[in-house]
Design a protein around this nucleic acid. Structure first.
Lengths: 211, 211
DNA sequence: GTATCCAAAATTGGCGCCAATTTAGGATAC
DNA sequence: GTATCCTAAATTGGCGCCAATTTTGGATAC
């Protein structure tokens, strides 16, 4: 079993549990696809106990972000093109289906809030870490989806996005890709403001397929 | 904490893990909404160890079928009308979105297989336990969804259906409801055979809203 | 240099145990 | 009869430990 030494360490004292911390490191590209996650290494890395590590790994395995191999341990799943395509298809279906409701529901305050989040993303492009960028993107999209009025769908899409290793490092490989994401956020808001459901659908579709 | 004595017991020797067994009992209405699931009771019921119980409960909590209350334990979630409606909406969106692909992809062999599963459901109406009926229904719907060509969606919908306490006992309260489900299965197959996508969509919508 | 074997080291898996917390029931007061 | 308090019993939470399994690296043979 390959022995990957992990340098930086984070404790669990900030109220986030180990599952979140491991997930962050997967999404940030620190724990690369294929990496074996040794329980004793994770204990040291995240300054936590073995049972906490085990629970986190089991949860991530249930979400299929990591795979459990009995007696050998857990490793980060390799990217799977089929899964990524299928997830994108699901997202397009769901997110375009609620476009009309979003347009209908959006108040001026909602639109202002979305603008704020889109601008926060822009700020993070220039000033933030990759993870901060990812979280700003997620915050924007959650806020957008909330306008669809189906909380289960918001949670489901948020969760489904994590199912593939569409880590930030692979999602935004170039500055041009990041800038396109940024433009599309603003264009989505414009479409909502203009009450243009079809335009919003097109933008959502394009945005998801870009990633 | 209410003390619910559970009579029947099942071991884990048949290869299914405790998570599945608990889930079955929730779906079968044996473990009712609101029931506190005491770890030591589950150990006895399923003839397994505490760590196995804990893992199962954590997994079910992650799926939001049970709620974890720190230091008090886990209880089965009460039915939530909002969640059930939202889940139905999600299912309608997804399952009607792939209706066209299902119609396109279905070979005569596929249609025959679906007929077999629909007939199996009919058989279970007359001869099976509630749980067997539930599983026959699930098998039919999975097979139907597989024709949509998106494996992630099949798994997702299967999982999402479990998110609400749409237990068999509540889904099919009357024989009339069961019979309607049975008729609709066959009508869906007829629509697929006839290449009638719109008809299939209507039936899927009606079927989901009925439950 | 490559293949095989073996023993030590490393790691996983899971059990037992007990501290921490909650519940239940009896005693007491009003 | 109801409310409050207290204590024992019950239960949860989590740690330590060690058996089981795998990996690693050195020795040996070809």
């Amino acid at each position: 079993m390959a022995d990957i030494m992990i340098d930086s360490e984070q404790g669990t004292s900030d109220g986030r549990d180990v599952t979140d911390l491991v997930l962050q490191d997967i999404l940030a590209g620190v724990l690369l696809p294929g990496t074996w996650l040794k329980q004793i290494d994770l204990e040291r890395r995240y300054k936590c106990t073995r049972p906490e590590v085990r629970r986190a790994l089991d949860r991530l395995a249930q979400k299929r972000l990591v795979e459990h191999v009995p007696n050998r341990g857990y490793h980060v799943y390799e990217p799977d093109g089929r899964r990524a395509r299928e997830v994108s298809e699901i997202r397009i279906i769901l997110e375009t289906a609620i476009a009309g409701t979003i347009v209908q529901n959006a108040s001026p305050e909602d639109i202002a809030a979305l603008r704020g989040l889109a601008e926060h993303f822009d700020f993070m492009v220039l000033n933030g870490t990759m993870l901060e960028l990812y979280e700003a993107n997620l915050a924007f999209h959650r806020q957008l989806l909330v306008l669809g009025g189906n909380q289960e769908m918001v949670d489901l899409i948020t969760e489904v996005r994590q199912r593939t290793s569409s880590a930030p490092v692979s999602q935004w490989r170039t500055r041009a890709r990041v800038d396109q994401s940024s433009r599309e956020h603003h264009q989505m808001i414009d479409a909502i403001e203009a009450g243009d459901t079809e335009r919003l659908k097109d933008l959502v579709r394009q945005h998801i397929l870009q990633g």
